[in-house]
Design a binder for these strands. Structure first.
Lengths: 140, 140
DNA sequence: AGGTATTTGTTCGTATGTATA
DNA sequence: GTATACATACGAACAAATACC
């Protein structure tokens, strides 16, 4: 039973509030977040719960964490464009751990998979690339 | 082979082993996983650690969880194709919680964003859609 | 160079709630 | 109604990385 008027604050609620603060610009890119310990005290929860809340935002790619330092709001990277020819198919999927390490895909982001007519595939990190459809298929 | 008790097994190691079992086909789509309690006992860790391990795979979209039932390997859905015209740009990003609920995007997957020349954007769930580049831009 | 404090990362044990079988 | 199983949460402890002095 949930008591109306008083709010059971869970990690999901904490994540939602912090997410809104980032979306609204109250927390700006590069800005540091309070420590897990401070967040826990502010929201009246345990540190583990606060840790789970920020872990959600990290998995969404909104913030980054550095052990021994803390959390800060992710700064959106520059986007590179890659041309795709007529008939190419573009899809996305979560990266394998190997791909995440190889392409340094940001947390929460998938990879862009471009499948050509011959079946060959090109993989691009989804956080830094976009696919532009071109009339002529010029990919070497 | 599992070697319980030999070396410290963390949730990441557990997730890696289960991931490999899914990738190799040892665990097939639709197949049920052992319960968290059984996994914890098998690997010699606490239930919370086993829970975190399967949570990783769930976030990657490899398995799904049903409260009161358990975990089973995700069956890949049918993929629909959407045409994109010349000059359209295709990118991906993690879904907002609203988009995840609205489009029912599978865990771990992002959304496909098709930006047209006029700046308007179309959003597609990345787990069930692919973008096919066409010579003519015919989107209603 | 070294030492201490801070902060995140991980794990354990335990408890309660909720949904399914 | 009972048993099973996932979801959330707390406290405690230690490790690892960073920052500061």
């Amino acid at each position: 039973m949930v008591y109306p008027g008083q709010q059971p604050v869970g990690y999901a609620d904490m994540a939602a509030e912090l997410r809104e603060q980032i979306r609204s610009g109250e927390l700006r890119p590069g800005q540091r977040l309070p420590s897990e310990r401070d967040l826990a005290e502010t929201y009246g929860v345990s540190r583990l719960t606060a840790s789970r809340a920020v872990a959600v935002l990290r998995n969404e790619g909104l913030i980054v964490s550095v052990r021994g330092y803390g959390y800060c709001v992710q700064t959106p990277p520059e986007v590179e464009s890659v041309a795709a020819g007529s008939g190419d198919r573009v899809s996305t999927r979560p990266p394998t751990p190997e791909e995440r390490a190889q392409y340094a895909v940001a947390a929460g982001y998938g990879v862009l998979v471009v499948t050509h007519a011959d079946g060959l595939q090109d993989i691009y990190p989804g956080d830094r690339y976009e696919i532009v459809t071109e009339a002529d298929s010029a990919h070497e």
